[in-house]
Computed example of a mutant assay.
Amino acid sequence: MMRFISNRLRHFSDSEEGSMVVPFALWIPLFIGIIVSGIELGSVTIRNTAMERALDQTVRDVRLGTGTVFTHDSIKQEICDGAAVLPNCMSLLKLEMVRLDIRDWSDPERGADCVDTSLPVNPLREFENGGGNELMLLRACYKYKPISPATGLGSALAKDAQGYSAIISTAAFVQEPL
């Protein structure tokens, strides 16, 4: 009986079956984290690029002053139309346009005004239409929910109380005279 147990133990210690289970179990979470972070980074990059491009195209239309009277809602609609990859754009995008005086310079407020998703009413922060030859700053802030808020890159993104992260784009332009 002792010989039988001894042979079985020796056979068990010499066997290499299942030897890859431990390294697999140790490395798979790291690889999954890298894959999920790559997907999150791609998602953020696509959203940021789409918003930057839409903002630049909209600012170009505003700057040229083609006779169209732009309002807050029309600029917001044009940005959302240009950035089709931003879901719920009209409700999650916040615009701020301020006049900057180059003769009496004061820095614009550093923090971007984003939609506060915890409040039912979100008033305009500041939106001024510029006149001819005036320097204007247009800042857009879009809130979105990360794909994986608890793992990889998604856990490192700054989030508000509801779990939304922000993408902020800024454009400055001089309003052409009519």
Rank of each mutant, 00 (worst) to 15 (best):
S106F: 14
I147Y: 07
E16N: 14
R60A: 12
K145V: 13
P23H: 02
C80Y: 07
S169M: 11
A156M: 06
L30G: 02
E16Q: 14
I35D: 01
P29Q: 06
S91W: 11
P29M: 05
H11R: 05
A150V: 10
A172T: 12
I168Y: 09
R139P: 01
D14H: 13
M136E: 01
I5W: 03
C141A: 05
I35N: 01
E128K: 10
G111C: 05
E96C: 04
R3D: 09
A140H: 07
T151A: 15
L153Q: 01
R99E: 12
W105K: 09
E126S: 06
A25L: 12
N133S: 12
V174D: 09
R47I: 00
Q57Y: 02
L138I: 00
P177C: 08
I167R: 03
V174T: 09
M136F: 05
F173L: 08
C89R: 00
M2W: 09
I75D: 01
G18Q: 04
G82S: 09
R103A: 13
G131P: 14
D56H: 08
E78Y: 08
N7K: 11
L119S: 13
M90Y: 09
S74Y: 05
V21M: 02
R10S: 15
L41D: 11
V174P: 11
D81M: 11
L86N: 02
C89L: 06
R103W: 13
S169Y: 00
P29I: 04
K76A: 11
T117A: 07
L100T: 09
L135G: 09
D73L: 14
D101N: 07
P29N: 04
S74L: 05
A50I: 01
A54Q: 03
R125A: 10
K76W: 05
D107C: 07
I147D: 01
R60N: 05
T71A: 10
I168S: 08
L138A: 02
G152I: 03
E109P: 04
R10A: 15
C114A: 02
D113F: 11
Y144M: 04
D14T: 13
P149R: 02
N48Y: 15
L86H: 01
D81G: 07
G82W: 00
T45P: 00
L138G: 00
R99C: 09
G65K: 04
E17V: 14
F4N: 11
I79F: 13
V85M: 12
R139Y: 09
R60I: 07
I39D: 04
F24R: 07
I39H: 04
R53V: 01
S13H: 08
M97L: 06
D61Y: 13
L137D: 04
I75E: 02
F127R: 08
R3V: 12
V98L: 00
R103V: 10
A54G: 11
D107L: 15
L157T: 12
D73N: 08
Y142L: 06
